[in-house]
Amino acid sequence: MLSCKEVTELASRRQDGVLPLRTRVAMRLHLMVCRMCTRYVAQLGFIRRVMAVYREREEVGKREGLSRDGRAKIREAIRRESEK
């Protein structure tokens, strides 16, 4: 029987590839009797959905764009490069 610690690692690994059949079965058996691991697996699934939304909306907080200084610096770099 897998330990909870092992199941948490496998739950993550499952998000990054396919687990061998034997491991998948062992994990399923564990999840049938372990409420905490079932929650953990669901929560990792949630974090994955969060990251999908983060990727889509680029949820980086209140920063909507370049700073005024940053934009001016880039404009200057564009001019310099264009004159070469």
């Binding site: 680029e58 920063r63 909507e64 764009g65 370049l66 940053g70 934009r71 880039i74 404009r75 564009i78």
Partner: peptide, 19 residues
């Protein structure tokens, strides 16, 4: 034109990088 690109796409490229 490249400066126009900066105006048009600068912010979204920045957010892409910042993320």
């Amino acid at each position: 034109s490249v400066e126009q690109w900066l105006e048009l796409y600068g912010d979204s490229l920045f957010k892409f990088a910042l993320a």
